[in-house]
Every structure is written in C-alpha cells, then in structure tokens.
Simulated assay, not measured.
Amino acid sequence: MNRSLEIIDLGLKDYQETWDFQESLFQNILHIKSNNRKDNLEQATPNYLLFVEHPHVYTLGKSGHIENLLISEEKLKAINAKFYKINRGGDITYHGPGQIVGYPILDLENFFTDIHKYLRLLEEMIIRTLAEYGLKAERSKGETGVWLDVGTPFARKICALGVRASRWVTMHGFALNVNTDLGYFDNMIPCGIKGKAVTSLNVELGKVEISMEEVKEKLLKHFLVLFEAEVKQEENHHISL
C-alpha cells in the first residue's frame, strides 16, 4: 500500500481546467488499477492532494436541483460567475477567491475501503484545523460538511463537502471558507438546505484577512495524521496546466 501523498498547489485556477486536471489524475489511477488486475501486476497507485482557489463559480452535484440556483444566466454573467453541472455527490455549492478548495485524489485501497469513514475523516480534518483558531466546529446530523453552533438558531456552515468515488478512487472534495465573499451565497440555497446560514473563518475571528497558506499548512498536517500518510515531496509546488 502506497500512503505517500503528492501535494499540488494550483493557486487561483479556472474550475473547468482544474476539473479536467483532476479527471486526468483520477483516470490514471484507475488505469493502473485496471492493468494490475488484468496483468497480475503490483504497480503502486499514486495519491494526490490538490489545493486551489477558483474564480467565482457555482457547481451542481448529480443529485442536486437546478432550482437551488436563484439567479439567471444573465445575472451569472453580470457577477462574473460560471455554472457547471458536475459528477460529485451533493447539491449546489459556490467556490470563489478566499476559499480553500481541496481535492484529494486517492486510491482508498491504499488506506481503507470505507467511503463513509473517508468523509468523516475529511470533516475531522476541518474540525481540528478550526479548533486551532479557537472555533468549536462540528458535524450536523444528516448533513455533510462542517458547521458552527449546530442545533441552535445560529447554525452556520463553514465548509462544504462533495466527493465522487469509483473503484475506491476519489475526486472532488472540500471547500473551506477562509476569506470568502459571503454575498455570493445569497444567489443559491447552499447545498439545497433552506434557512441555513454560511460563514467564513475571517468573519468568525473578526479579522479582515486570514493567511491562506497558514490554513493550508494546518489542513495538511491534520490530513497526514488522520490518513496515516506522508508527503511525497517536501514542499508544495505550483504547476501550469
């Protein structure tokens, strides 16, 4: 089992370009697994964790409802945002500058074959990261993602999750609001859940801006512990697609 992890920081990158890149990594892992089975090989499958910020974009999961996007195509253009229907689970979500999006592309057979455990560990990574900033984040029963003040009238979501898995290979992932312009969430019903607010780390801490690099370092630290993984390369690097 290969538990080494290649970290790729894409910086600010278009959603479609990033999706295509994810898909190429995802398909390569599936190709290796297929060849291993077909030819009785034991080639190790790689694992990746992509960090990225996207320009303004709304994405709708395969189980989502288009009615949860509350604005027209014309309004999308007016606010310089894009919209995509994609192949992850979940409903609608928003990505934009100031939000850390993480895409773990893992062969879970290198770790464990339990998709529910995978989701819970991603949530736990977020919870532990936010705890370092003095926030008590938690899960909300029946709702993926990470929340604050669950069970109160002030419940608000700070991190969305949506994944796809095929033959135990994952793609898509999590979106943590750090310095996010929350006004963009007004154009949708977040994750299809009415009456629930969203928040971001800088709002919760009452600061203008939080270091994105610092948050990514904390996320990675907790990811490595929870998944009992190690970094393949010592430093994050930027690549051009």
Rank of each mutant, 00 (worst) to 15 (best):
V57M: 03
A137N: 03
P153V: 09
Y84E: 09
K141Y: 12
V169Q: 04
N87T: 13
I115A: 14
E67P: 06
L60T: 04
T152Q: 13
R139W: 08
E109T: 14
L130R: 02
Y103N: 10
Y133C: 06
H56C: 10
N177F: 00
L122R: 02
R167D: 08
E74A: 15
E124A: 03
I66K: 15
L121M: 14
L161G: 01
G89Y: 08
T180V: 15
L130E: 02
A165C: 14
I86T: 12
F112M: 05
N177H: 01
L69D: 04
P104T: 09
K82V: 13
R167G: 07
K85G: 10
E74W: 07
K82R: 15
W147V: 00
E73A: 13
T152C: 09
W147S: 06
D149F: 14
H65C: 13
G162K: 00
T113W: 05
I115C: 08
I127K: 13
I115P: 07
L119A: 13
M171L: 11
G61P: 02
G98C: 09
Y58K: 03
I100M: 12
G145Y: 03
L148M: 11
Y103P: 01
I105A: 10
L108Q: 00
S72T: 15
G145R: 04
I105D: 01
E124Y: 03
G134M: 08
H54L: 05
H56W: 11
I127Q: 07
K82N: 14
T129Y: 02
N179Y: 09
F83L: 06
G64L: 06
E74D: 14
R164V: 06
R128I: 07
A160D: 00
T180A: 03
L130T: 06
L60C: 09
F112I: 11
K136V: 12
L119R: 04
A137I: 05
D149Y: 12
V52L: 10
A81H: 06
H116G: 11
A175S: 13
I92C: 14
I105M: 07
L70H: 09
T144H: 10
G102L: 11
N80G: 13
Y103R: 07
D114R: 01
K117H: 11
C159W: 01
A137H: 01
L119T: 14
V57A: 02
D107W: 03
L70C: 08
I158M: 00
E53D: 09
I100G: 05
G134L: 12
L108R: 01
R164L: 15
K157Y: 09
N110P: 03
V52S: 11
L176G: 00
T180E: 00
E138N: 13
P104R: 05
I105K: 03
K157S: 04
I71E: 08
L176E: 02
K77N: 14
K141I: 11
H172A: 03
E67V: 11
L106R: 02
E124W: 02
R139H: 05
K82T: 15
P153E: 14
G89A: 08
L119K: 11
I79E: 12
V57Q: 10
G90Y: 04
D114S: 06
V101Y: 02
G61E: 03
D107E: 12
I66H: 15
Y84S: 11
G98T: 09
G145W: 06
